[in-house]
Design a protein around this nucleic acid. Structure first.
Lengths: 272, 272
DNA sequence: TGATCTTACGTTTAGCGTAACAATA
DNA sequence: TATTGTTACGCTAAACGTAAGATCA
């Protein structure tokens, strides 16, 4: 039976041009390489080389054999990679959430409930959560509404209410509450990776512009150093609240979101 | 590095269902199989089996790995077959002739001029000789005319003249010579595998029917035991001539054929 | 009790490296 | 003289088989 490492030496010989260089490259002795080449020829029962006294080169069949060997080795390598990836995928719980907040709590909980599983989480738009659930790319989805689908386990998870956050000097700062209509037209500072919230704001406040920041630190800096209002929720308020800001609730019902976890029935991991 | 024989054991395990049967099938000890399975897992760094006290079975990853292994082994096997076939093709001179006669002499001559080459010869129609030359399927072609093509070596080889062979009682038997027109309409006994001759007869004698025989012995029997005329040439006449037959030449110029050998310029074998 | 898988242990052998040689440029 | 490929030889480590143990049907 052919051996892949011998084929590897054969390919290396074609690339490096001398047996000596192959032996150096793979840290084995030159005689071993000579032997390996002979063994391949025996195994195939075919002559692959034109042997001169101190020069050896591939003949036509040898050259073709190298190409076969190359693809065999490549296939083997790909197979190993695929198998490992598949193995990994079976030990990974993939969560796609329409908003950041649910992940803060869910990911650690999943992690401790499934000790030898990798938790892979990401935030994306509602539609992408749905399609990832349907094509099996995602094990758990978090949606901002209660999905009706018999093939999934759907469970209420948590709620989150949206507030605006304005400087005390701001003209809105004395308001008890606002509606989306009230704040439509004002420009806001916004973090990226807000998933569902992002869509909601753009839908409810079509006249507003949003300055999207990727970096959390830079976002905080901008909030402090500009007069632009930003958003905050009841679940983030504690950490981000500051004395010189007014935190004003948004009265629209859409500003309070109920999150639901969705997972395929018969999943092997524990949700808790 | 993966070893193909270990993969083979893995595939066999899936097919034979127990390690013991694999060990029996390949005439090696059971512990060796156990070891091989462990080594594959180590090599892939992946668990492939669910191990019970006296039962071992493939898990999901194992099942998928078996399929990868199967195709890898199949690919390797195909590669070996292809390489051997290619090697063989390089040691084979393929001759396609438009008629049987030139081969009688050419094949032995090629064989002795190229001692360690296999000579593969076949008879086919003129067009097939040409296309085989053009697509490289054939090394030497024999055509009934002088091909004008700069990429080929074309050389006159031999001529052959067609005669008809009729019983003494036959109405044509007293003729000194005949033309195709004279014999058009008579039905003839014909051997199969005549290549070019076959086409010529059908073209020149559209009103005739030809009773084609595959077996040479049966053909001779039919010639003797029927009154049907048959063909013969100056190169076959000696063996097949009999006293109670008249051998009559065909006067048309097309009845005398000049054969040419055609081979790709730069071919490595000797023509002589 | 027979079949299965695994572990432990001793042996074999296959594979490797060193040394030495021949040939080339 | 330096580089290349090959052969000869001795050793090591990997691979194998036997024997034995554990578990299950």
């Amino acid at each position: 039976m052919l051996k892949l490492d011998e084929l590897q030496y054969l390919v290396a010989f074609k690339d490096l041009e001398t047996l000596n260089r192959v032996s150096e490259n793979y840290n084995i002795s030159a005689p071993s390489i000579t032997r390996a080449m002979n063994i391949i020829e025996q195994e195939l029962n075919v002559t692959l080389f034109i042997r001169n006294k101190n020069k050896i080169e591939l003949n036509k069949v040898g050259l073709r054999t190298v190409e076969y060997a190359r693809t065999l080795l490549q296939n083997a390598q790909n197979a190993v990679a695929d198998i490992r990836a598949y193995d990994q995928s079976l030990r990974t719980i993939t969560v796609k959430s329409c908003a950041p907040m649910p992940l803060w709590d869910l990911v650690p909980r999943l992690s401790s409930a499934n000790p030898n599983m990798t938790i892979s989480s990401s935030i994306c738009h509602t539609e992408q959560v749905l399609s990832a659930l349907n094509d099996g790319t995602s094990d758990i989805g978090i949606l901002p509404y209660e999905l009706r689908d018999a093939s999934f386990n759907v469970q209420y998870y948590d709620s989150e209410a949206l507030f605006i956050c304005v400087k005390k000097e701001h003209e809105l700062s004395k308001r008890e509450s606002v509606s989306f209509q009230d704040i439509n037209g004002y420009n806001f500072l916004l973090m990226s990776q807000l998933g569902f919230w992002d869509s909601l704001c753009k839908e409810k406040m079509p006249s507003s512009k949003f300055l999207v920041q990727t970096d959390a630190f830079e976002f905080e800096e901008l909030v402090r150093n500009s007069s632009l209002p930003s958003f905050i929720t009841d679940k983030t308020a504690i950490t981000a609240a500051r004395k010189d800001y007014a935190i004003i609730p948004i009265t629209d019902p859409e500003a309070t979101v109920h999150f639901y976890t969705v997972s395929l029935k018969g999943s092997s991991f524990k949700m808790l």
